[in-house]
Amino acid sequence: MKNLHEPDQMRGDFELTRREFIVAGTAAVALTALPGVGRAQPAATTSQSALPLTKVSFNVNGKLRELELDSRTTLLDALREHLHLTGTKKGCDHGQCGACTVHIGERRMNSCLTLAVMQQGASVTTIEGLGTPENLHPMQAAFVKHDGYQCGYCTSGQICSAVAMLREIKAGIPCHVTSDLTARPQLTAAEIRERMSGNLCRCGAYANIVDAITEVGGKSA
């Protein structure tokens, strides 16, 4: 039986996944009902159980977390399935949508395209670490104010991406639409759109997202 969280499901390998799901149905439901028993746990296949788990520790939102993981576990799955930080979303699982964007150190990264074991010793910040409902990060507050979302699925990735993107502009990192490579990049709508192109929004909230980022960028500049 394959791990239900493998991207097969998203590739239309539906026959197999559905059968597995029915076979595993009761067990899966029972497991997910128990907090702390993630469905992405390994040992679902014989070859899997032959592999020892790898110890990994990294800092997430200011707390040291230690995990024992199947080496195949992506940072995204470690966050969502093992640490239950489900604010970070899985959209495509292939680096194409940006829903899984988190900060590793100061930088935005796609957590679906890095292995948790590769992040030994790293400092990871997720949407949960940026702000809380009582104490929103200015970017979170601006998304609320400007209606920078509709369904909200892409939003945590958009916000994490936007916060780090403003740091990139501040650090003078150029982008595709920067006309003069030797000058400091400016915070224009065209710059924001290009720099945020790794974050897709199926609901098309783009105009409001640009407004939210412009407001925060203007204040911090």
């Binding site: 935005r108 990264m109 991406s161 990192i173 720099r195």
Partner: peptide, 26 residues
Amino acid sequence: ADERVRRDYAVLSRALLAGASGQLRN
């Protein structure tokens, strides 16, 4: 973003910036 690359090998900066996304380039 390297200053020397931007100044002396700008075609390389431009090609890199035309590819992928901010997250991926990081």
